[in-house]
Amino acid sequence: MRTTALVLAAAAAALALPVVLDGRQLGIYVLAGLAAMVTVGLALLMGFAGQISLGQASFYAIGAYTAGLLTVNGVPPLLGLAAAPVLAAGFAAVVGIGLLRLRGHYLAFATLAMQLILLSVLAQSEWAGGAIGLQGIPRLSVGGIELDEDVHYAYLVLAGLTGTLLVARNLVASRVGRGLRALATSEVAAGASGVPVGRYRLGVFALSAAFAGLAGGIYAFYLGYLGPGSFPVLLSVEYVVMAVVGGLGTVSGGVVGAVAIVLLVQVLNDIGTRPGMPSYAPSVLSYAVYGLLLVIAVLYLPRGLVPALSRRDRS
């Protein structure tokens, strides 16, 4: 009961907020929502399939570039947005065949390598705008109505996040979800009891990539420009921090972690940019916070904020 009430309250707040927020706050709302979409997928991957990805921002980048390139080349924006998660998932499924043979720290480094290679390729590709990136991506339009205000994107992100959460929730509650939980506990045991381990792992990997790809697609239309520099390795680490802080293996953990950290970093950013602060203050503060949060969460809150806060009902 308590969970339902909490979810309803959160949903109501998420619906009402874009109306009351001012311009800058709306920007934060959009970024938090996008980060939440990526993190929900990553928390599924880390918590249920039991594998770490230090390259989740790659899928975000692929989604963004897919949407951006298609629309810049004349494809209707909505189609571009729809292609973003599909292409990201397809890419994950293909590279996953090789990468997912790896476990633990090998997988961590392999996904990191995947992102570095992707960034390097993007920076050298004329068709992707090279190191400068893509400029002048048109705004998204649905049935002739152009989404040109931040508040539109806030609701678009909310819709995307809701869709992401519904898919994730249904997956967790399904037979596949039970198989995944078995897989996270013991891969050998899961395999022995008939769970198609390889297919499930690849499936979750691709699904988490789809979530990130969709978020990336929205991001491309929201900002209007992209470059390899928009997707640093650090962004992937930030998603890991959000997932770990929120709690792995819970669907809501991804949202809680992402929102909490985006807000926290925003507060620090405000402090860091006050007059009299040195120019490097905002980045120093955010590095320190990401680093410390990760250490503290792993050592003292190994199951994350959400399970720690709600011992009785696991969502």
Binding site: L234, Y280, S283, Y287, G291
Partner: peptide
């Protein structure tokens, strides 16, 4: 491993400072 990743990020703050 994740703790050392966190420390590596934290070190950015120290080094930049």
């Amino acid at each position: 491993l994740i703790v050392t990743l966190g420390l590596a990020i934290f070190a950015y703050a120290v080094v930049v400072l």
